[in-house]
Structure formats: C-alpha cells, structure tokens
Simulated scan of single mutants.
Amino acid sequence: MNVQHQTPQSELKSEELAKIASKLHNDIRTYTSLKNTLKAPLVAAILLGIHSKELSLSDLKGFSTMKNNDGAVIYRAVSSYLEQRQRLEPDFDDSKIRPILSEFKFLEINKALYLPTDKLDNHSPLYEFTSVLFDVYNTVKISDDTDILGDFYSEFVKYNDSDGNVLGIVLTPKHITSLMADLIEVGKENYLLDPTTGSGSFLVAGMNRMIKQIPQGSNYASEFNEVVSSHLYGVENEPSIYAVAASNMILRGDGKSNIT
C-alpha cells in the first residue's frame, strides 16, 4: 500500500517564504551596502509600513529630496502609525515606540536603499523590496500560524556573513517553538514569558495556541485583546532585534507593550 506524503499547508507556506526570503537577502546584498544587523529591521519596517495602510507602492517614486526619498516615506508611514496607536492606547507609551523608530532611522539616510538604479528599471531598491513584501503580506494571512518576520529572519541568519553569526544568535525553529507551546499546554488563561525573545517566535507560538482556545462569540474580541495585551512578555537586549520582535508582535495583533 502506497501512502503519498502530503506536506502540511503551513509547511508549504514556510517553504515558499524561505525561498522569497533567500532571494530578498541576495537582492539586499546585491543592490545595497546595508549592514548585516539591519537586514531584518529593514523587512520589519517595510512590513509595518504596509500594515499601517498608510503606505502604497505609488508613494515610492525614487529620490527627490533628502526629506522625501523612499526611505523617508516608509519611515513616516511607520512613525505615523505607531504615534496614532500611542494616542489611542495608554500602555503603548513613548518608551516602547522610540526604540523601534530609532532602529528604523537608517531608512532615511542610506542612499543605497533609496537611490534609483537602472539595474532595477530606475526604481530604488526599497521600491523593489516593498513590492515583494506587499505580495507576501497580501498572500499570507497574519492570523495564520505563519510567522512572516520569523521566517525571514531565520533565513537571513543561515548565511555565514549574517547578523546571527556576528551577534551569536541561535534561532529556535518554528516546529520546536510550536512543540514547546503544546508540551507545556499553554492556555489562554496563562502568562508566557520569554527572557531571550529574539524575533518573538516563542511568543508567536504561544499566542497562536492561546488564541485558538478562545471560543467564537460575542466575547471573542475582548478575550483576544486580553491575551495579546496582558499575557505575553518578552525581554530582548539587542536593540535591532528588539525592533524586530516588537514589530512582529504588532503585526500579529499586539503584545508589543510587554516586550522590553
């Protein structure tokens, strides 16, 4: 009897994301002089800009002035979105958003990112990267188990010259984080702490399991907000990775105010 192996859909998504991440990594290396430690923050910033709904590809028109280049456009979209959240949510204070924005400041000043090039049909590298990530964002549902930023970051640190080697980072594979969440039977009434947060993969795995336990109904939104705002805690000392982790949690519905 032949049993045909069928790859789970979530695994297929990860494989597809890994291929996109690998190509994006090569493109970043080819078209920019970006430091290794800024590659994951670059993806985080663009995804947050897309998530903000304040950024479109038509906004990216190549270099015009220092205050209106493609990097500045993306940075303003992220900054406006985070500051709007700050006004609406008292616990989303300045001490949380300023470190994120500080790590994204390079977008405005790195000319290799925002200057158009004939190698890209006179588009900037940022335009090309954002176009790719728009497709990813619109294809992969944020509410699914897929961890977009985690998948990209994991792919980036596979390379010998990556930030993972420089900083001594070892990322835990997604299937292990999911397994650990299952083994400890984390529930929506529990509180989850990751003292070495990294890109937030353990928090994402725990959040996914918690949210699946919330029954559909009139109280779903309230219970969801309770989980993501009060039950997830992380600590990350490396500023660039903190920005990635905080962005990851914001993309997934929050949890950001409890990462330090």
Rank of each mutant, 00 (worst) to 15 (best):
N2Q: 15
Q4D: 15
H5A: 14
Q9N: 14
E11V: 15
E11F: 12
E15G: 09
E15T: 12
E16Q: 13
E16V: 14
L17D: 11
K19W: 15
A21R: 10
S22R: 15
S22E: 15
H25S: 13
T30L: 13
Y31P: 05
T32L: 04
T32V: 06
T37H: 12
K39L: 05
A40D: 10
P41C: 00
P41V: 08
A44G: 03
I50E: 14
H51Y: 06
L55Q: 07
S56N: 14
S56M: 12
G62M: 09
S64M: 04
Y75G: 07
Y81Q: 04
E83M: 12
R85A: 07
E89C: 01
F92K: 06
F92D: 02
K96C: 05
I97H: 08
I100W: 01
E108L: 05
E108I: 07
K111R: 14
P116W: 03
P116H: 05
N122S: 05
N122P: 06
L126F: 09
T130L: 08
T130W: 04
F134V: 12
Y137R: 06
Y137V: 09
N138Q: 13
N138W: 03
K141R: 12
S143N: 09
S143I: 06
D144N: 13
D144P: 03
D145W: 13
I148Q: 05
L149R: 01
F152H: 10
F152C: 07
Y159A: 11
N160S: 15
D161F: 03
D163E: 11
L167P: 00
L167F: 10
I169D: 02
V170L: 06
M180N: 01
V186W: 01
K188I: 11
E189Q: 12
L192A: 13
S201N: 13
L203V: 00
A205F: 07
A205M: 08
N208A: 03
I211M: 12
K212Q: 06
Q213W: 04
I214G: 05
P215K: 10
P215Q: 05
Q216N: 14
E223Q: 09
H231D: 04
Y233M: 03
G234Y: 01
P239S: 02
A245N: 04
N248C: 08
M249F: 07
M249R: 08
I250V: 14
I250Q: 00
I250P: 00
L251H: 02
G253W: 02
D254C: 13
D254P: 01
K256C: 07
I259R: 00
T260R: 15
